[in-house]
């Protein structure tokens, strides 16, 4: 998977490194601001109220 992505990044090595870092940053941002906020209430970690 990662090998496939790396092979399909265009350009010389420095350019590829930049692109790879951008991809990682994008995935992390997606997780932090979209996926985790959505998933967190579904997980049994932080319910603080009584019913």
């Amino acid at each position: 998977m990662y090998g496939w992505i790396w092979r399909h990044l265009p350009g010389p090595l420095p350019l590829r490194l930049v692109q790879a870092l951008l991809l990682v940053a994008g995935v992390v941002a997606l997780l932090m601001f979209v996926v985790f906020p959505w998933a967190e209430p579904l997980l049994p970690f932080n319910n603080v109220t009584t019913q």
């Binding site: 998977m1 990662y2 992390v28 997780l31 932090m32 985790f36 967190e40």
Partner: peptide
């Protein structure tokens, strides 16, 4: 190899979730 990479990725995502939380 693909399965291994997915498992490693899943572990990293969980670590990231702890950091987030």
């Amino acid at each position: 190899r693909a399965i291994g990479e997915l498992l490693i990725t899943a572990g990293l995502v969980m670590l990231l979730f702890v950091v987030y939380e």
